[in-house]
């Protein structure tokens, strides 16, 4: 009885969570220029528009990809030495540095966005795509920091002991034990940052100063003119990327562990 109630509750929750997404996705099939639900005159032509023929959308998509890949790479490169130092020394200074690096992710995004808008205006980078890349790298630095730290703590102590006994130097240990064992966690951090950067828009809005648009920005800008099925295609593409990425993390990494599950129970 109670079990059945629980199952009903969970399916209901899943349904509510999926509902708006399903509706947006089905709206992508509309043949006309307006969003209808259920879709009228279903067609896949909108997908062609989004990925191939409409320059507004293909340009936005290219910008999104450039910013997301650039920002995720940069944030992983910055997070690695910080997380490694924290794990290695555990000193107060390294804890402090990691905390400071997580601040942008913790404050309301609109506040950090406003700040970055001023920041780049002074440096003269406002509206350039590299300013967008750096901004997102800083904003999402906390994600690879956390996943890499979790990975470093998961390294088997016996391996480090063995390496030390056999006289391995720090760099050799790093190359042969630390790097390979933390690789899944590094990749997870990269993908978390990638997906969130892909979907972020308010910080990008202040940094881009309307001189370039990512997909989310482009959709936000056209919100006032009403929705078109092409926007729904963007939503389909984005959710597909997210599901692919997180499935990959779950497949090759340890997703429950990354999310903080108890290790002793399986």
């Amino acid at each position: 009885m109670l079990r059945a109630l629980g199952a009903i509750f969970m399916s209901l929750a899943a349904l509510v969570v999926a509902l708006p997404i399903l509706i947006v996705c089905s709206a992508a099939l509309n043949g006309g220029r307006t969003m209808f639900f259920p879709p009228q005159d279903p067609t896949l032509a909108r997908f062609g528009e989004f990925f191939v023929s409409e320059p507004v959308w293909t340009r936005a998509l290219t910008n999104s990809v450039i910013v997301a890949v650039g920002a995720a790479t940069l944030s992983v490169l910055l997070a690695w030495p910080i997380a490694y130092r924290l794990w290695k020394t555990g000193s107060r200074a390294s804890t402090m540095l990691a905390t400071l690096g997580s601040i942008p992710f913790a404050v309301p995004p609109i506040v950090f966005g406003v700040g970055l808008g001023f920041f780049w205006a002074f440096l003269g980078g406002l509206g350039t795509i590299w300013a967008g890349i750096i901004s997102h790298a800083v904003l999402f630095l906390a994600l690879p920091l956390v996943t890499i730290s979790i990975g470093l703590q998961a390294i088997d102590r016996a391996h480090l002991d063995a390496a030390a006994t056999m006289g391995a130097t720090e760099s050799v240990t790093f190359r042969t034990i630390v790097m390979p064992q933390t690789l899944p966690y590094t990749v997870s951090g990269f993908f978390f940052a990638l997906v969130l950067s892909f979907n972020e828009f308010i910080v990008m809005f202040f940094v881009s100063a309307s001189s370039f648009a990512t997909v989310t920005l482009q959709i936000f800008n056209s919100l006032r003119n009403g929705y078109t099925p092409t926007m729904a295609v963007a939503a389909v593409a984005f959710i597909a990327v997210s599901i692919a990425v997180f499935s990959a993390v779950a497949r090759w990494g340890d997703l429950p562990r990354l999310m903080g599950a108890d290790q002793s129970r399986n």
Binding site: A14, P20, T216, I219, L223, Y227, F246, A250
Partner: peptide
């Protein structure tokens, strides 16, 4: 978790649209 993370990362603009 995959399902939740995918919806969590979906941009505010898409969710509002839905």
């Amino acid at each position: 978790l995959v399902f939740l993370l995918a919806t969590l990362s979906l941009s505010e603009v898409f969710i509002v649209m839905g």
